[in-house]
Design a binder for these strands. Structure first.
Lengths: 104, 104
DNA sequence: ATTAAAGTTCGATAACATTCGAACTTTGGT
DNA sequence: ACCAAAGTTCGAATGTTATCGAACTTTAAT
C-alpha cells in the first residue's frame, strides 16, 4: 500500500477515542468469526448495532461517534451499511493486513 | 500497550512525510541487520547520519525534518543519539511489535 | 581565527481535527 | 397520525499540526 493511503489509515487510528472504537469493533468482529467458525477466512459478516453499542460504552455525543465512524470508513478500515433498522459494520481485513505488512 | 501510547504511535505515523521518513529509517535498519547477520535479534545497532540522509532525500526544510525526528522519538518509535559528528538513529522494535500485536 | 556543516529552537501562519449541541431525517412502534 | 429511537449534518469553539525561514549552537576543517 502506498504511503498516502497508509498514512490515512494511521491517521484514523491516531485519535485515542477512535482507536478505542476501532478496537471495540475489531475485537467483536474476531469473536464473531470464532463463534461462526469462519476463523481465518478474513473478516466476519459484520457486527450489528455497532453504533448503538458504541453509544452505550463510550462517553461521547452521538454526533462525535458518528464522525468517528465516518473517519474509520474514509480511511478504508471499516465498511458500514444500514439495512433498515440495523447499522452493520465490517472490518476491512485488507487494510489491517496492509498495516501489519508495512511493519514486517 | 494501552490506548494512549498506541494512539501516539499511530499519530506519529499519520503524517505522510513522517511515515516516509520512518519507512526510510526502518528499511535501512533492517538491511543493516541482514548485513551484520543480526537478523531476528531485534533491531540494528543504529543507522548513522540519518538526519543528513533524510535531508538529502526528502524535499523538506531541515527544521521540519528535525521536527519529524522529534515526533518519532516522542512516540517511542525511534531513539536518536549524537556521538560527536554523527546522529545515530535506532528503531525501537518493542513499539513496532506493539502495533503488530494490536492488529492480531 | 574564520568559516562551513549539522542540527536545534523560535515565532509565525495556515490548515486541519475534536467535540459539542441543535436541528434534521428516516424507520419502527403504538 | 404521533412519538421515540437511531443516525446524520451543520456551525461554532477550541486546540493541534505542518511547515517555513531566521537565528542560534556545536563540532570539524582550513
Amino acid at each position: 500500500m502506498e504511503a498516502t493511503r497508509l498514512a490515512k489509515v494511521f491517521k484514523a487510528l491516531s485519535n485515542e477515542r477512535r482507536l478505542e472504537l476501532f478496537r471495540l469493533i475489531y475485537s467483536q468482529c474476531r469473536q464473531e468469526e470464532v463463534r461462526s467458525q469462519k476463523d481465518g477466512k478474513g473478516c466476519c459478516e459484520g457486527i450489528e448495532k455497532a453504533f448503538t453499542m458504541a453509544c452505550g460504552c463510550m462517553d461521547l455525543s452521538r454526533s462525535t461517534i458518528s464522525h468517528h465512524f465516518k473517519e474509520l470508513q474514509n480511511a478504508g478500515l471499516i465498511t458500514c451499511t444500514r439495512q433498515r433498522q440495523t447499522f452493520i459494520c465490517q472490518v476491512n481485513e485488507e487494510y489491517v493486513e496492509a498495516v501489519r505488512s508495512f511493519l514486517s
